[in-house]
Simulated assay, not measured.
Amino acid sequence: MAESGPFRSSASAVQLAGRLLCWSLAAAMVSAAVDASLHPPLRWWGAVWPLPWWLVCASALAWTVLRAREKADRPPPQDSVRSDWERAA
């Protein structure tokens, strides 16, 4: 049995990549809103605010690849009609 603790998670890599995608998208939208509405005069802000958008792109790519691998590894159910499985995919 797996150990439980603060750093142990039962979430799959696909779920973790999906969570990263959602949180990075939220951070990107917040940083874009701050940039659009407040126009921070800080010199480093121009280099920092697009970083969450790059993370969105990277995490979306990672989630897509992991999800495709997860779906490819899963065999079709034996008790259902093949056309139902193809429609769901």
Rank of each mutant, 00 (worst) to 15 (best):
residue 1 M to R: 04
residue 1 M to G: 12
residue 2 A to N: 05
residue 2 A to K: 10
residue 5 G to N: 03
residue 5 G to H: 04
residue 6 P to W: 10
residue 6 P to F: 08
residue 6 P to T: 06
residue 7 F to G: 01
residue 7 F to V: 15
residue 7 F to Q: 08
residue 8 R to C: 11
residue 8 R to Y: 15
residue 9 S to H: 13
residue 9 S to T: 15
residue 10 S to N: 13
residue 11 A to Y: 07
residue 11 A to P: 00
residue 12 S to R: 09
residue 13 A to Y: 03
residue 13 A to S: 05
residue 14 V to G: 01
residue 14 V to T: 04
residue 14 V to D: 00
residue 15 Q to W: 01
residue 16 L to W: 03
residue 16 L to F: 02
residue 16 L to C: 05
residue 18 G to V: 02
residue 18 G to E: 05
residue 18 G to F: 00
residue 19 R to G: 08
residue 20 L to F: 11
residue 21 L to Q: 06
residue 22 C to L: 14
residue 22 C to R: 13
residue 22 C to P: 00
residue 23 W to S: 03
residue 23 W to Q: 11
residue 25 L to A: 12
residue 25 L to T: 12
residue 25 L to F: 11
residue 26 A to V: 07
residue 26 A to D: 03
residue 26 A to N: 03
residue 27 A to E: 03
residue 27 A to F: 02
residue 27 A to D: 02
residue 28 A to Y: 08
residue 28 A to M: 14
residue 29 M to K: 15
residue 29 M to A: 13
residue 31 S to A: 15
residue 33 A to W: 03
residue 33 A to R: 10
residue 34 V to G: 04
residue 34 V to I: 14
residue 34 V to S: 05
residue 34 V to F: 08
residue 35 D to E: 15
residue 35 D to R: 12
residue 35 D to I: 02
residue 36 A to D: 01
residue 36 A to R: 09
residue 37 S to F: 11
residue 37 S to Y: 11
residue 38 L to H: 12
residue 38 L to C: 12
residue 38 L to G: 04
residue 39 H to M: 14
residue 40 P to K: 09
residue 40 P to D: 03
residue 40 P to H: 05
residue 40 P to F: 10
residue 41 P to S: 05
residue 42 L to W: 06
residue 43 R to G: 01
residue 43 R to M: 05
residue 44 W to D: 06
residue 44 W to N: 06
residue 47 A to D: 09
residue 47 A to S: 07
residue 47 A to I: 02
residue 49 W to H: 02
residue 49 W to Q: 00
residue 49 W to N: 00
residue 50 P to V: 11
residue 51 L to I: 06
residue 52 P to V: 10
residue 53 W to Y: 07
residue 54 W to L: 15
residue 54 W to I: 12
residue 56 V to Q: 01
residue 56 V to Y: 00
residue 56 V to S: 01
residue 56 V to I: 10
residue 57 C to T: 12
residue 60 A to K: 02
residue 64 T to D: 07
residue 64 T to V: 03
residue 66 L to H: 01
residue 66 L to T: 02
residue 66 L to E: 01
residue 67 R to P: 00
residue 67 R to V: 01
residue 68 A to S: 10
residue 68 A to E: 08
residue 68 A to Q: 11
residue 69 R to P: 00
residue 69 R to G: 03
residue 70 E to G: 07
residue 71 K to C: 11
residue 71 K to S: 13
residue 72 A to H: 12
residue 72 A to G: 07
residue 72 A to P: 01
residue 73 D to M: 13
residue 73 D to H: 12
residue 76 P to S: 10
residue 76 P to C: 05
residue 77 P to T: 04
residue 77 P to G: 06
residue 77 P to L: 14
residue 77 P to A: 13
residue 78 Q to F: 07
residue 78 Q to K: 10
residue 78 Q to D: 09
residue 79 D to W: 09
residue 79 D to Y: 04
residue 79 D to T: 11
residue 80 S to K: 15
residue 80 S to G: 06
residue 80 S to N: 10
residue 81 V to Q: 13
residue 81 V to M: 15
residue 81 V to N: 09
residue 82 R to T: 10
residue 83 S to D: 06
residue 84 D to I: 08
residue 85 W to P: 00
residue 85 W to I: 04
residue 86 E to H: 11
residue 87 R to C: 06
residue 88 A to N: 01
residue 88 A to D: 02
residue 88 A to T: 01
residue 88 A to R: 07
residue 89 A to R: 15
